[in-house]
Design a protein around this nucleic acid. Structure first.
Lengths: 205, 205
DNA sequence: TAGATTGTTAATCGATTAACAATC
DNA sequence: TAGATTGTTAATCGATTAACAATC
């Protein structure tokens, strides 16, 4: 229901998976709160929202808890995404190991540059013309946009028209999407600007 | 004062720069609100917080407004940053054009891998051993961490010990830093997980 | 039982928005 | 002047936290 709590859900998951490798069997709201730097009440409130219950006195069973969270996060299956745009950022994302490790698979890349099209044996790269069809045929739910600003809205329109359900956008521009298609923006220039701004603000105090 | 309003400040800046290229001379709180998808009162409240005033009836002069905002954002000078870790993400950031365009300059990269050390004529890459000295000597204020999880805390410690003022961290791990050094995290796996989660939540409703 | 932990209700806090006086 | 827009105060909203009853 609440976007913040969904983000925390993903963090609980990571913490739980680590605790599990350490041999932990149960966990208390207090433990998770410490790990995330929040309050224990918040943890219990979050779980309450998703109808996750624990045992008074006994905390939460990690296996049960993880299963519930993974189901809520939609992680019971492999999560397939397509990548649109193979510039610097796109290429880095393509090679980034972290996704596979978390059950996220980039199944195909798309670019207008013919030189980038082909299959190096890992992830195939197709021409932009094939984007719509690919999404429809393979029922892809999530697309990542890593094209230049000017091409971003066009890319999004194709994704939406082909039935995409959600988008992660790296182009530093506000995209127009129908309400039912969530678009999350990652703007790296802005992130760095914010840090300088925080530094400046601290200096001014 | 408020982190949200600082982030918006950066967005106002982008919008204003675009309006300026279109030949606009003045702008109303309503215009900026539309551009950011927020309310006009919020825009005026933000400006009020930073002691930016406009003209009743006449809106805000774009040049004046931009100058004020750029000063608050610390954009009067070139913003120098160092990049620690030249894996996929680090390399992509190194080649990303968007920073230079906004007055952000990656002045050096650092990596443990000797094969990555050198100077291709654009941005020099040094051994990790030189990181601390470089920051101190060049009075670098912001560092970007793009090393693997396990190396991230160590990298941060060096940055902090050398007097860094703020950090952007791509390692998917919570780093411990002194309170006065803001650390902003970008976690791409988490961003994609959140999208899937939003999709799932929508389906459940 | 005594102590510890959950789950929920009520209070608090902070950020956004509505309302409106000031004024160009 | 009439109309439009700013700047601020007060109301609202949503999210976090404190308090505490339930109970293992």
């Amino acid at each position: 229901m609440n976007k913040q709590s969904i983000i925390r859900l993903s963090k609980y998951k990571n913490t739980l998976q680590r605790l599990k490798t350490l041999g932990f069997v149960k966990v208390f709201s207090d433990n998770l709160a410490d790990a995330l730097g929040i309050r224990a009440t918040q943890v219990r409130k979050d779980f309450s929202q998703f109808q996750i219950t624990g045992n008074k006195r006994g905390g939460y069973n990690i296996d049960d808890l993880l299963e519930r969270i993974l189901r809520i996060l939609g992680k019971t299956n492999l999560q397939k995404v397509v990548l649109v745009g193979l510039g610097n950022m796109g290429t880095a994302l393509m090679h980034y190991q972290g996704f596979e490790r978390e059950g996220i698979q980039i199944v195909a890349g798309f670019d207008i540059d013919p030189a980038k099209i082909g299959d190096d044996g890992r992830i195939p790269v197709y021409a932009m013309d094939n984007l719509g069809d690919f999404i429809t045929k393979n029922r892809i739910e999530v697309g990542v946009i890593a094209v230049p600003d000017i091409a971003a809205q066009r890319a999004l329109d194709i994704l939406v028209a082909s039935g995409i359900k959600g988008v992660l956008n790296f182009a530093p521009i506000r995209l127009r999407a129908p309400e039912e298609v969530p678009v999350t923006n990652v703007n790296l220039v802005q992130e760095i600007e914010n840090i300088f701004c925080l530094i400046n603000a601290a200096r001014a105090e």
